[in-house]
């Protein structure tokens, strides 16, 4: 068992300033994860060379991998910091743990990035059930256990951004909306009430930056911390948009 853990962290004080790297060496504790390492640095922000520095800024909240806040690149792979257990990381690389912010989003500070484009995408695809209002008018539609079991995995998307980070189509030359929002289109289009505005969602993902931008690299599904079948959703969305395009053309 190691006595110390070495972390090399990419830092950036402000969006407009330059990046730099710092190395920290912290005492090893059993069942540590990347969050507890960052907590230890916050409590005593001293680099491995013994220089006092500022605490590393990072995003987190639940620490149970259900809020989606703590996504970052850890040893070069995007994942949630709370479930990144130090023992497992040291098996990947016994020398150090390397932390970098996600690269596909604007940097706020250190490991914090701005993921508002993902929330904007949920607006674009109208990811909600268009109910009449909130007065009591009885129960919702009846849903079979099979439908529930198909929908449930899609409902667990926490807008963490891993799928966008891993996607080669998310780059400066493209305005691809990303797998997370497309999967939400399928969730709501398959719901008995949600499907009443399915055409609006399909229109949205047929616009520039929509589903046709997907390059089928299938990286998204590999990095999703919740094992959401994102590529199945994209395939379904492809079929739904094709049918929608034909009906739209026929009814012209």
């Amino acid at each position: 068992m190691p006595r110390f853990v070495t972390l090399t962290i990419q830092r950036q004080d402000r969006p407009e300033t330059r990046r730099y790297w710092q190395t920290f060496c912290i005492p090893y504790v059993e069942q540590m994860n990347v969050i507890s390492c960052l907590q230890a640095i916050a409590a005593d922000p001293t680099t491995a060379d013994g220089e006092a520095t500022t605490p590393v800024a990072w995003d987190c909240n639940c620490l149970e991998e259900v809020c989606g806040a703590c996504s970052m690149n850890i040893n070069g792979r995007v994942r949630q910091a709370c479930t990144a257990l130090v023992d497992a990381l040291l098996e990947e690389n016994p020398n150090e743990i390397r932390l970098e912010p996600m690269s596909k989003f604007p940097i706020v500070r250190d490991l914090i990035v701005d993921r508002s484009r993902m929330f904007d995408a949920l607006k674009r695809v109208r990811a909600w059930i268009p109910v009449d209002g909130y007065y009591h008018i009885g129960p919702g539609p009846r849903i079979s256990p099979r439908q529930q079991e198909e929908a449930y995995p899609l409902t667990r998307c926490m807008t963490c951004g891993c799928c966008l980070e891993a996607c080669p189509q998310i780059n400066n030359a493209s305005d691809f909306i990303g797998a997370a929002a497309i999967s939400q289109v399928i969730l709501f289009n398959d719901h008995p009430t949600g499907k009443l505005i399915a055409h609006e969602r399909l229109d949205a993902i047929m616009e520039p930056g929509g589903i046709t931008e997907c390059g089928n690299a299938q990286n998204c599904v590999k990095v999703c911390p919740k094992d959401i079948p994102l590529t199945d959703s994209i395939a379904k969305a492809g079929r739904q948009t094709s049918i929608h395009a034909i009906t739209r053309w026929l009814s012209r």
Binding site: H136, S144, Q148
Partner: peptide, 17 residues
């Protein structure tokens, strides 16, 4: 009932309740 209408994927009985 309201949450059900808002699309919460509650677990279901075989009959769909």
């Amino acid at each position: 009932d309201l949450l059900d209408r808002l699309g919460v994927m509650f677990n279901r009985t075989p009959e769909g309740h």
